[in-house]
Structures are given as structure tokens and as C-alpha cells.
Design a protein around this nucleic acid. Sequence first.
RNA 1: GCCGGGGUAGGGUAGGCGGUCAUCCUACGGGACUGUGGAUCCUGUGACUCGGGUUCGAAUCUCGGCCCCGGCCCCA
Length: 431
Amino acid sequence: MEFTRPRGTRDFLFDEMRQRSEAENTLREVFENYGYGEVKTPLFEELKLFTTKSGEEIIDQLYNFKDKSDRELALRPEVTAAISRLYINEMSKTAKPIKLYYYGSCFRYERPQKGRFRQFWQFGCELIGAKSPEGEGEVISMANESIIKLGITTAEIHINHLGIIRGLFEHFGIDKEKSREVMVVVDKGDKQLLEDALKGDEPIIDNEELADILLVLIDMVGDSSIFEDIKNLVFDYEECRTALDELQELITTLKSFNVLNYNINLGVARGLDYYTGIVFEIYVPELGSQKQVCGGGTYSLIKLFGGEDVVSTGFAFGFDRLMDAIEACGNLPTVKPKVDVYVAPISDDTRQLSYTIAQNLRCENIKTEIDLSRKKFKKLLSYANNLGVRFTVLVGSKDVENNQVTIKNMQTGYQELIDIDNILSYIKENL
RNA sequence: GCCGGGGUAGGGUAGGCGGUCAUCCUACGGGACUGUGGAUCCUGUGACUCGGGUUCGAAUCUCGGCCCCGGCCCCA
């Protein structure tokens, strides 16, 4: 083969595309039921937009380039930054809260593996300018509903409030740099690793009391009842109380939204400063090492980009992983044949009439295919068979002399003579 | 960036201790067969990922590239 696909990219063929469209429509429906409107932003942006959000280091993982006027650009690695930019550019005076969603591909220069590609699709939303616990509650509820409607039955939602651990850092006077380092370790969710990092030979922070609390906290994963344990552990540290209150309220709100199947998990962490409140992730364990299908939280990116301080909550689904998850749960929709009726001219002199018959069917939204390559009789049926159509309309001169055609049910093999004028009604009745 | 397993017609595969024509299924073309024939039979086109090395001879052994699969790292 002369040309190959670029590494980490995929071609999608008919069946897979139909399954993906179906999932896409399901998500659109859910998001729009919650009052979200779709937006679309460019596939590429100024490189600066992404480095401002995530630091210079991400250039390693970007597809960036200079255009012919020497502008530094990059293919977007995610959409949240673009949405914040769009908000500042066009929507800062729009009545809040603003609810928008997006679907599109993103690009990252990474080593491809299962559930990870260089071009991949994200389906996400942003809720801009809502009050915290209720906005977060609704957003999580929407994510939860999406997962359920897609047929993903084994998903786990993990929620954390970064204010708790941040409050502890503040209380113990830990600087930003060290806090971030600890966060990174906490995020790995490995207790032994954390113990080594805090109490090993070269501890990141030299504080026994904080280390002990963190080591207990990281184990606190469980349903909403675990909140009491967390509260008992950190209530004495004043800096944590706002976060505790917010988390408490979120739990109450989620209950009202009828979301009960989540975990509180202090191990869901983020190193970046713009996260201000809750963060959450959704895992589908069957997917192995790339099991995270969704990530989200509350952040003030807009301020970071030079706008006013408007807090948003949002999340993004890794669309490709959602498809994997649906498959893992055995709930991929079976694809229907893409054509319902095949019109087969079996004599040369009935070809033109066949086109007319096909057009009439198409006018009534019946998916119809007609022979375009002058196939012989046997090939006509064989082709129709491979298409998986329900009916083949055999148009031959002997029948046409009596103003009739033969309609064959391809599943049963049963066929009957039908008046040309009655083709439409016959097919509509039997389809 | 690191570790492992792979790559054979359009799709799916067999073979591989070096040696006739590289296997089978499917799809595609022709025929038995100008309208009952979606079957069956016959037949045709079509492939050893790319490049170097060893060898009289490489799909097979060897090295490297590219790509795929899985695992680590990372994950905005």
C-alpha cells in the first residue's frame, strides 16, 4: 500500500459510524433536555491559549505549527479552553448561567494504545456562572443520565472537593509547589506511594500530623455516608469548613436529583490551580488502563484568561471510550441494513421504469437502492441479498406488460405480483 | 519516552526448523444459465508491511524503519 493512515488515527466505516451517530444523538438529547445548546469552535487555536491553561510543558503533547504568516497555532487538545475563550470573546454579557455543549475531535501527540488515539472525540459541556452545589449537582446528574441512557451499566462516579485538601495545605502552611507535588501523588491513588512520599527518606513535606491525616483521607472512598468520617477527621481545621459545607450541600442536592450511585473519593485530585471546587471522574473498570470515560469539575479558567471571575462547571466525555464502554457492556445497538428496498431491473427495457419506481419510493422516505451497473439476474439477487434489504422489486418486461412487478420478501423468499400503482402501498404495509 | 506481542489478496486466515505452483473462507469478474437463477459447480483477478543483512536461494533467519495490539509513563 502506497499510503497509510497517520499513526493514532482511524477510519470509521458504515456500521461503526451508525453506532457512533446513535450514541451521539442520545447524548445530544440528554444535554438538550437539560437546556444546553450546542456550540462549535475551531479545530485549531492560538498555541498560547493552551499553554496559558496547562503550562509550557504540554507543547510536547500538542500538534502545533506556524501558519504562513508565522502565527503560532495548535490543534486543540481539549475544548474547555476554547469555550472559555469564546465566552470572553462573545458571551460575557449573556445572561447567566450559560449552558453549552460541544462535540468534536481533539488532537494529542501521544503514544496510541487502547482507548487512546491521536485524533479522538470529546463530547462535553460547560455550565458558566451558576452557584456551586446546585450547578454541580445538575451537571453530575446529567453525566449520570448520559451514561445510563447509553447503556453503560458498570460506570462508577467518583467525586471529590479539592477545598478539603487545599484547606489542609493552607492550615499547615504548605506552599503551592509542594502542594502540587503532593496532589500528584494523591491522584495516583496508591497509599504506599503516598506513604513513601510523605514519610520516606526524602518527604515532600515534613509534617507528621498532615501526613497522618492525608494517609487516612486517601482511604476514604465510599458512598455519601463516608462524609461523616471525613467531617470528623478534618472539621477541626477551619480552612476546610467551607469545602465541607459545599460537599454536604452537593450530597443533598444529588439526592434530590436522584443520583445515588456515586463515591466520595478524596483521591480524585488535580494539580492545576484553577480548579476551585468539586472534581469528578467516571470510570468503567472493564476498559482496563484507559478506564476513565469522563472528567470534570468546577474551575475559574475565565479569570486565568483575563476575563472577570466567573466560575464554571463542566465535564467532557471521551467519546471513543464511551463507545468501548457500551461495547463492553454488550449494549452496542445492532445496526440495521442501510437500505430497505432494492429495485432490480431484470430486462434491459424495464430499466427506465425501474428508476421511476425507485424515485417514488425514495419520495416516501423508503431507503431504496437501484442497480446502477447493469447486473445480470443472478447478480441482482445476490447483491440485494448482501445489502440485507427487506424487499426486492423485480421489474421484468413480462410482468410489466400486465402493469405488474414481482415483489420478493428477501427474508422469507415469498414473492407476489403487485400492480405497479400499488407498489408503494404494498411496501409501506409490509415494511 | 520505556517494555512485550504482532503485520500474509479488499476483509478474515493457514503455513513458517530456508528450497516445486503460498492454504482456505469471503468479496469481486467470467461461465454452466437471455425471467425464478439469492443454491451448486467450473473458472479468473488478487497478498507474504518497507528497507538492509546472511544465503546458491528468504514470507520463513537477522537488523532497522513504519504501522497495529497490549502494558507502563503521562493524562489538560
